[in-house]
Amino acid sequence: MSITQFLFYFLTVLALFSAVMVVVSKNPVHSVLWLIAVFFAISGHYILLNAQFLAIVNLIVYAGAIMVLFLFVIMLMNLNASAEPQKNNWLKLAGVIAGGCFLMVLVSLVKQANELNNIAVTMGTGEIGLIKNLGKALFNDFVVPFEISSVLFLSAMVGAVVIGKKA
């Protein structure tokens, strides 16, 4: 087993285990910390896929900024595990069965798709993930969406301030 294969399996197991722990943790703070572990695993996958810029952006934006925001909100509300209301067990079981059925249907769909059989992801080649090439594409072909996203950020900021303000 080569080193990239080993890393792939390691990161996959880490991502899935942490994702399950996000859902089953009783304490919301623990959920946030497990979600950060998921984001680290996904960033590792990005690096394996030669998307270095996206890996760093994923760490900075998701694991850095968004998760700190979540943590702030949770600590602001002073939530603890005992205060959280639980759904009854039948509803939980129904949710798990629904999600499992979704997974089963899509996995069987992918299994039957013969078009995907000979497609392999080769790791360690290609330069499209480098910041130089991404920047060229971003500021040549995608200037308008880029500028529109700045307007989106401004409106989101104004919206968050207006909503969060004491009415």
Partner: peptide, 24 residues
């Protein structure tokens, strides 16, 4: 790595997200 492995991983992560939305 066959592309199917990535599809299965993403489907599993997505399904875990769905289960979380439905059960919490």
């Amino acid at each position: 790595m066959p592309i199917q492995y990535y599809i299965y991983l993403c489907l599993a992560l997505f399904s875990i997200g769905i289960v979380g939305v439905l059960t919490r």
